[in-house]
Design a protein around this nucleic acid. Sequence first.
DNA 1: GATTTTTGTGCAAACGGTTGTGTAATTATT
DNA 2: AATAATTACACAACCGTTTGCACAAAAATC
Lengths: 342, 342
Amino acid sequence: MSVKPTTIKEIAKLLDISVSTVSRALNDHPSIGLTTKMRVKKIAKELNYEPNQRAIQFLQGKSHTIGVILPELSESFFSAAISGIEEIAYKRNYTVLLAQSHDDADLEKVLLEKMKTQRVDGLLISVAKTTINFDHFEALNRLQIPIVFFDRIPAIKNIHSVASNLETGTYEAVSFLLKKGHRTIGMINGPTNMTSSAERKNGYIKAMTSHRLKYDPSLMIHTALTEEDTVQAMNTFILHKRKPTAVVTFNDYVALFAMRYARSQNLKINKDIEFVSYANLPIIEYMENTPIASVEQFPFKQGQKAADILLDLINSPKPDNSTEQAWYKVVVESELVTGKNK
Amino acid sequence: MSVKPTTIKEIAKLLDISVSTVSRALNDHPSIGLTTKMRVKKIAKELNYEPNQRAIQFLQGKSHTIGVILPELSESFFSAAISGIEEIAYKRNYTVLLAQSHDDADLEKVLLEKMKTQRVDGLLISVAKTTINFDHFEALNRLQIPIVFFDRIPAIKNIHSVASNLETGTYEAVSFLLKKGHRTIGMINGPTNMTSSAERKNGYIKAMTSHRLKYDPSLMIHTALTEEDTVQAMNTFILHKRKPTAVVTFNDYVALFAMRYARSQNLKINKDIEFVSYANLPIIEYMENTPIASVEQFPFKQGQKAADILLDLINSPKPDNSTEQAWYKVVVESELVTGKNK
DNA sequence: GATTTTTGTGCAAACGGTTGTGTAATTATT
DNA sequence: AATAATTACACAACCGTTTGCACAAAAATC
């Protein structure tokens, strides 16, 4: 029952050779004789030797760890994202230090501090909704710790970012509805200050105009994404002189609210009125009434991409002060997923 | 633009004192003069000094990190659990190394290996469904790294575990239905080899018998939790000579399937037939038909408890070989949550 | 004023590896 | 056979911090 893990010293003492020889033997250094290598490796295996990563990390001044701060893992977008991040990290032999901000800016700051003292080699973060001050990221910059912003991107200059563009997916979604014969399409959009609301709006308008249809602003309703707002928006649509036969909702939750209210008004889902949404509830497929199509944002893929970029940044030579730094700004296109290829 | 973080050496050189004095000054060691302490702390603050945790971890032979291996964060049970784990870990100044096994026993083994080489101070794990061999946990035991098993507990002796007991919640659920006047209550249970199926069954039986009702085995159907099985079970109930007026389903997914099928058979949910389920879909409240009550397992609380136990184990003196080790076996009672206190 | 005690500080080892450099012993070259 | 080249290993420094011990200077005691 060994209490402490085997060290290189013990092996050295056992074989009566120096620790440097043992180290080199284990790392297949060319200047070590074959017989010595064999002897060392044999003993190492017998003693279950494993190099102490903490010692190596310390020696090399690298933690081989990336910090990941996400708002909420219970949101399926983020739990899918962390899987993508993890996959890449482990594949590239990095370790993931995870923390959730629970959308609390103060907690986020504390966690950032923690990541710094833990000397993570890089940070991947989706900022909290409440974060308005970005000074604390500066401290990491000073320490040359690269940061990749993910999905929720602060509006500041000179940062690396990975996010999806919902415009393309929205364009596809609206086009899909147009192709199905719909001519009056409502949209329950989010708050005007969110960039993703603007992307949805732009996609919608582009789809309409490129099909030679006029954009009717009264069919585009901005809400705070609550059930109340959604009901009100649906009511507006139902009473509208051009009653929409299809509605694009900001997300699955909104779709749920909207469909429930539509049913209560005796509208037959997918018959009187069709819905298209943005995928964030995997469960929605199991339900009675589902949107006929969804805009998929590929959070897993986005996570992979972001992690890949971060690790590239970590392992690329540090830019001189003189040379211009290049900033990654990756946009993952969203895509419409219809019933058949779901 | 400092590239490297400030070290204690730099402070020492700047003040022309020794590193040991600086170290002691920063740690408020009593043998350091007040004036020296002040000078050191002032400079330290100016230079944004932060102790290199990696160095300290290495020196102390502790990583102050716990490894957490969960099957799937997209399952809300686990994403809630990780939040509880995180909270406790951060509160007690530990760091969380997260990994998902995706219910793959081989991957789990690899991750375990990774945790070992990363020298985590302890491990918290919910084993993969496919894990049948538990030898690889032995290696951690040899290194005196405590393990707490969580929710999914392997059937081996001498382990620490935290899990919920569904018997109490099920008892409450069935009692609740009986109190509402139901006398014929069906149960769509899981595979017989799962302990949680047995807990549900026991709770059901105890509730029935303690209300002086006879247990009717034909109303307890074991399924593989698929939609097909669920439909078949519901069909059995509908055609049963004692047609149940209420059904307890294994989980929310099963409830969803069951309710969908019931509707298709023109049964009015919560009128002709009522459902009680086990909470694992937060979204279910948003839906059209919801179970009238849910058995809650408190994954967040379970996570907290498990983390607390693990950290206690880490920080308790190591047991001598002579003394008997005590094994934690914490059972978190489940509880019925009805509409009003949801 | 000499001795003891207290106070404040420095020295050096230690943690577990990696790696540049020095140097014997062996082999190859002439 | 003498010299050069190669091989195979050892020595020691280093990473940042903590900590036991030694020790000088100042204060307290007689």
